[in-house]
């Protein structure tokens, strides 16, 4: 980075501006492993007591591992559903001559722009009637349905860039339309599938309102709901515990970003290389 002397004022300004954020994160991290004397912010002892929730389940709460597993299942299932359906629907909308194609495209667009939260009461009723209220499957279906329009549009965009001749060549080579899609077209949109899967997973992992309303208690609780329950619990409110669970909750997200950041950058940089 030599020779970039002019950039130091910018770096300085950015550092000063982002310092509070960095400090907050650092403090969050330190705070979960230490105790501070009353009235002070400076920690004076190292402790693991705030992390005891990992191996000790207080009465009346679900085990943290059970909740984590729920979150994981919720996020992976919605991501899988979204990816599978979007990768097919996107292809159909991009390539096949389906009746009312324009209507579907516009419809998907409207659905995407539609604030799904306004439907929550109706969804709540529907889930209760079909008996999926307070179940993981119920929220998974709802979440996947809400994320799908975005996924379909994203995948349609990726399919649109695949040359038409490749498919025709595949057909001439004797492959069925389905084989052409799976063996020839799908590999060209792999970056899209991957990005969509990752986003859908992160969206699912971070989702709070839907599980909170549709699966608030019982065995279907996910991490975000668990966390919210901690604050709401007036009897034994524990700030440090809340912070620890919070850190535990965002750790997978940070890890994912750490591993895939270069990949995601590449996609946003227009790098849709097959």
């Amino acid at each position: 980075m030599t020779g970039h002397l002019k950039s130091w004022p910018i770096v300085l300004a950015l550092s000063i501006l982002s310092a509070p954020l960095v400090l907050m994160y650092a403090y969050l991290f330190i705070d979960t492993f230490t105790n501070a004397p009353p009235g002070s912010f400076i920690p004076n002892e190292f402790t693991l007591e705030h992390w005891t929730f990992l191996w000790h389940t207080p009465p009346g709460r679900l085990s943290i591992w059970r909740v984590t597993l729920n979150s994981l299942m919720f996020a992976t299932s919605t991501a899988t559903l979204v990816v599978v359906v979007s990768s097919m629907a996107g292809y159909v909308l991009s390539r096949l001559n389906v009746p009312a194609r324009g209507f579907f495209l516009a419809g998907v667009m409207v659905l995407h722009a539609f604030p799904a939260i306004t439907l929550i009461v109706a969804i709540f009723l529907v889930l209760q009637i079909v008996g999926l209220y307070n179940t993981l499957i119920g929220v998974i279906l709802v979440k996947a349905a809400i994320d799908m329009p975005l996924g379909i549009w994203l995948m349609k965009g990726f399919y649109d860039t695949v040359p038409w001749e490749i498919e025709m060549a595949g057909i001439q080579d004797g492959a069925s339309r389905f084989t052409v899609w799976r063996k020839l077209v799908l590999p060209q949109v792999k970056p899209g599938i991957f990005a969509l899967g990752l986003f859908a997973f992160l969206l699912g992992w971070g989702e709070f309102i839907l599980p909170q309303v549709l699966a608030p208690s019982g065995n279907a609780q996910v991490l975000s709901v668990y966390l919210a329950a901690l604050i709401a619990d007036d009897n034994n409110f524990d700030m440090a515990l809340f912070k620890s669970v919070g850190l535990f909750y965002i750790a997978p997200v940070l890890i994912l970003f750490f591993f895939f950041q270069s990949y995601l950058m590449n996609i946003y940089g227009g790098g849709t290389k097959g």
Partner: peptide, 14 residues
């Protein structure tokens, strides 16, 4: 069973 060579060749890039 027709062999076609397209103008853009349409090779499978992957």
């Amino acid at each position: 069973n027709v062999g076609v060579v397209f103008q853009s060749y349409a090779l499978y890039p992957h």
